[in-house]
């Protein structure tokens, strides 16, 4: 089988998995671009930050930081904390991303919640290449975001179609991926912990500060509960 054929098939196989993300990212990206726009920044700002940072909540926060007093250390620490969940994804993807050659750099650079979920949960279709499939999932997702952010920055204020609630597409996608995991696994303990512990953390610390405590709780629980977690076959 020739190489171009495999690359093309990988792209065609990857595209349908990114459709819900297309809806969510275009909408959120336009919102972000518009937010930058009304905050007084030209479209170059949302375009460049969506290319280089490419982490939704961090970018929204960055707008506030750009409007506030110059404090690079605080910016660094805040963004580090918000994006700490990427550490989770990295550990889960160490094996999956190995052996993907130079594409690995982009796979890591472009790893977001959505690309992580798709790449981590999907069984790579036959006649495609694992590395290219994951590469296309990642780059398609990022292009939707960059496109949305740029369009929002340029045209944001002209949109008058009522898009309220469209971003639920992404929540729905995570619900589906979670359901698929439940249907696939024999041992549900890790999945249950993944809902219960973040909810507990959310109730204690509130929506702005719950991420790091939730991560610590999950790590601690997974290590303490190793025996029951491995019972009845591994979680995956």
């Amino acid at each position: 089988m020739n190489k171009n054929g495999i690359i093309k098939r990988s792209l065609l196989a990857a595209f349908p998995y990114t459709l819900p993300i297309l809806a969510g990212f275009l909408f959120l990206g336009i919102t972000y671009g518009l937010y930058m726009n009304v905050s007084g920044f030209g479209f170059v700002y949302p375009m460049v930050t969506s290319m280089l940072v490419f982490a939704g909540s961090a970018e929204f926060l960055l707008v506030n930081m750009l409007l506030g007093a110059f404090d690079p250390i605080q910016t660094f620490l805040m963004i580090l904390m918000i994006n700490a969940r990427h550490l989770f994804y990295g550990i889960s993807l160490l094996e999956k991303y190995s052996g993907t050659g130079l594409k690995k750099f982009y796979l890591i650079f472009g790893m977001c919640d959505e690309s992580f979920s798709v790449n981590c949960s999907v069984d790579i279709p036959e006649n495609t290449d694992k590395g290219w499939f994951m590469f296309f999932v990642t780059i398609l997702n990022q292009s939707y975001w960059v496109l949305g952010a740029t369009l929002g920055g340029i045209f944001g204020s002209f949109i008058n179609f009522n898009t309220e609630g469209l971003d639920f597409a992404m929540t729905a996608m995570f619900v589906v991926i979670f359901l698929e995991q439940l249907l696939k696994e024999k041992n549900h303990l890790s999945s249950v912990l993944g809902i219960v512990l973040p909810v507990v953390s959310l109730l204690i610390f509130g929506p702005d500060k719950f991420i790091i405590p939730a991560m610590i709780m999950i790590f601690a629980a997974l290590i303490l509960l190793k025996k029951p977690l491995l019972k009845g076959g591994a979680a995956i």
């Binding site: 989770f88 550990i91 889960s92 890790s190 999950i218 997974l222 491995l230 591994a234």
Partner: peptide
């Protein structure tokens, strides 16, 4: 075991 918890 982490991915299942992360999806949640």
């Amino acid at each position: 075991v982490l991915p299942a918890a992360v999806f949640g």
